[in-house]
């Protein structure tokens, strides 16, 4: 499944790159792209683990920049 999420308080380009690298390493992630300019995260992961991956991705973001949040509607 591939989904796009808005990012909140993503305010440094270097952090975005670090988050992207960390999210890509989560097991179950096929591909991830953290776009600083459009403030969007495109996450492609196995359907079964998608929710878990998303939670893990949020943790990755916390580690890099605490205020940054993945907006899940």
């Amino acid at each position: 499944m591939k989904k796009k999420f808005k990012m909140e308080n993503l305010d440094c380009a270097n952090c975005a790159a670090k988050m992207e690298a960390a999210i890509k390493k989560i097991p179950g992630v096929v591909d991830a792209n953290m776009n600083f300019m459009t403030q969007k995260l495109t996450l492609e992961a196995e359907d079964a683990r998608f929710e878990a991956v998303l939670a893990e991705a949020q943790k990755c973001c916390d580690r890099v920049d605490k205020g940054c949040r993945i907006v899940v509607e």
């Binding site: 440094c12 380009a13 270097n14 790159a17 600083f36 300019m37």
Partner: peptide, 15 residues
């Protein structure tokens, strides 16, 4: 020591 000037301005330029 922070490369921020480059890390931000280069992608911003292309964008």
């Amino acid at each position: 020591s922070c490369p921020c000037a480059l890390v931000i301005s280069v992608p911003l330029g292309f964008f």
